[in-house]
Amino acid sequence: MSPRYLKDVVTLQLDEERCSGCGMCTQVCVHGVFAVSKSIAHLVDRDACMECGACARNCPVEAVSVRSGVGCAYAVWKSWFRRKKEGGEVGSACS
């Protein structure tokens, strides 16, 4: 298991009503956050989410939402200053 980060902070949301149980989210997530049982996805390890956005982007019925970005102090630092100027997006600095 990879190390754990802070508890109860991530923005990941799953709308189980919409889910079709296709299992795409379980395939793309590198932290095993989802599991499909009885044809519906469940969040089995929400705190392990790193907000990469792969699940939301690959869910064909838009049942998943997350504010995606990079968990990188440097990127956050840059975005704090950029946002004041032009309302830029958070989280991409490894250029």
């Binding site: 990879s2 902070v9 995606s68 968990g71 990188c72 630092w77």
Partner: peptide, 20 residues
């Protein structure tokens, strides 16, 4: 150490923001 968050594959944006 805080800077190292960017190198890992398990820190979330919301988490790093809160920590910072």
């Amino acid at each position: 150490a805080l800077n190292f968050t960017g190198c890992t594959t398990f820190t979330s944006l919301s988490g790093v923001e809160k920590e910072m």
